[in-house]
Structures are given as C-alpha cells and as structure tokens.
C-alpha cells in the first residue's frame, strides 16, 4: 500500500497555482460567471420553482442595486432637456447620454425601475415562502435566519412600493415618513448582510475559485488510495487536506512503519469498506 503520490507537481498554495494559470483563468472567467453566478443552472437542476424564485430575487436585487447606488452616490442623475418639460436626459457621472420622453414606455420604465425591482423580489419571496410553508421536508431543516432574510427582502420591497403609492395616488401624503421607514429597512437590510443567510451573496462567488482549483488539480497527479490502489481525487487536494486537518485539530496519521502514512490517503469507498470489515470482525465475522 503506497501512500498517495505527493511530488513536485503539487503546488505549494492555491494562490500560487492561480497566478501560474492567470491567462487561462481569465479566459475561463466569462463562462464561469455566466453559468455559476448569473443563470444558476445548479439551482434549476435541483428545483425549477426554487430556481425561478431565486432568479426573481437575484435580478430584482441586481436591478435595485444598479439604480440605487449610482443614484445616491451621484453617479447617475436625470436632467430635463432645455425647456421641454416632458423630456429628460440620463447623465452618467457628468456625461449626458440617452434622452427620453417622460410619458413614453421607456420613460415610465426608467422612472419605475425600482418598482419593477421590488415586484421581482416580491414574486421570488412569495414563491420561496410558499415552498417553505408547504414542503414539510424544507420545514424540517428550516433555520431561524431563513425567514428573517425573506422578511427583510419583503420589508424593503413593500416600503419602497409605498413611496410610489404615496406619490402617485396620495398626492405625496406620508411621503417623508414612508421615506424614512424605507431608508431604515434598506440600511438594516444592508447591515444584516454579513450575519445571515444573505451572506452567501459574498460567499458563493468562492465557487469560482473552486472551479479554478479543480481545473488546476485535474492537470496534476491523482491521489492513489492506500487500500485499493485506485486514483480517487487530486493529490493537490489531499495534500491540502492533510495540511489543514492538524490546524483544525485532527490527527489522521497512522502509527506504523511509514512516517507519513495517513488515513486520509484512503478513498471514500475504501473508508466505508474498512469500517464494515472492522465492525464485522468485532461481531465474530460475516455469515
């Protein structure tokens, strides 16, 4: 039983590995972003309803962020064109771009972009909520933060829509109060990001790193199972795991002849077989 092949081909660190493949990694980036971050096919394959809901919320939030942040940071504003009361021009930073009629479909769409975003998010939230309330399986693995995230999205969207309600139908009544409430929900929502379920917005892109790590490792040598002798993973990842396990308090080294003999060099299938054989021996054998 030979220990896994750990030789010079294994990169000392993931970052070095990434640097070494910078060119190829850049080329691969657009398609990875498209599939992993934007179209999210991995969710669709799990459940269409879940995917639809996630896409609604995702694009709603993206749209809202694309409007809100430039607007509040002054990167985006609108000016009326000359003396024409109904014509506006979009200014990105200080550069005037598109001109449009306020009364046109385009104009309506631009001025209601945030409402559209809110409706998208709400649609997603309701699909999610429906699933959560109707699927006993989902309910069983429910975590307290799951509802909080949905409640937050709901609050931001609804308070935002109330602003439109106030300006369109109520002649601006309650606008100031509603505006404060809306701002508050947005700020609270943004502050909540690092702590709850929505943290995955920052974390999930780590998946791109995993894709790079995989591509890199696939070109390197495989790990060889100490029990069956078959390849079972990349030597790089097994080496990394052997590195990291002692740091988190585990010692899977094996007391024996070879210095670096390690249980982690066993393939998962052989781990299951070893457990079964060892247990069977402790009850007087199989059969």
């Amino acid at each position: 039983m030979a220990p896994a092949a750990i030789d010079g081909d294994v990169e000392p660190s993931g970052w070095d590995a990434f640097q070494a493949r910078k060119g190829r990694n850049l080329v691969a980036l657009p398609s990875l972003v498209a599939t992993q971050l934007l179209t999210q096919g991995f969710i669709r394959r799990r459940s269409r309803a879940r995917w639809l809901a996630h896409q609604f919320v995702f694009w709603g939030c993206i749209l809202a962020a694309l409007v809100t942040f430039p607007l509040t940071l002054g990167l985006l504003h609108f000016e009326s064109v000359g003396q024409e009361a109904d014509r506006y021009q979009v200014y990105l930073s200080r550069v005037g771009t598109l001109k449009f009629d306020a009364g046109s479909i385009l104009g309506w769409t631009i001025f209601h972009a945030l409402d559209i975003a809110a409706v998208l998010v709400l649609a997603g939230v309701f699909i999610f909520l429906r699933r959560r309330l109707h699927d006993p399986g989902a309910l069983a693995v429910e975590r307290s933060g799951d509802f909080l995230a949905l409640a937050g999205l709901f609050a931001v969207s609804v308070t935002g829509l109330f602003l439109t309600v106030s300006s369109t139908w109520l002649g601006g009544r309650f606008y100031a109060a509603l505006n404060t409430i809306h701002a508050l929900t947005v700020i609270l929502g943004l502050m909540y990001l690092p702590f709850g379920k929505l943290f995955h917005i920052f974390q999930r892109p780590g998946n791109l790193g995993v894709a790079y790590y995989r591509q890199q490792n696939a070109e390197g040598p495989p790990a060889v199972c100490r029990r069956c002798g078959d390849d079972f993973a990349s030597a790089q990842q097994i080496a990394d795991l052997r590195d990291v396990l002692p740091q988190v308090g585990f010692d899977y080294t094996i007391d024996g002849d070879a210095d670096d003999d390690n249980y982690q060099d066993t393939c998962p299938r052989c781990r299951r077989a070893s457990v079964t054989l060892a247990q069977t021996a402790r009850v007087g054998g199989f059969g």
């Binding site: 591509q215 696939a218 079972f232 993973a233 990842q237 998962p268 299938r269």
Partner: peptide, 10 residues
C-alpha cells in the same frame, strides 16, 4: 451505479 459516483472527482 458505482461508476456514477463522483466522489469529489473534478
């Protein structure tokens, strides 16, 4: 079915 097992293979 055993061939289908990806077991962490890329």
């Amino acid at each position: 079915r055993e061939l289908d097992l990806t077991e962490g293979r890329a």
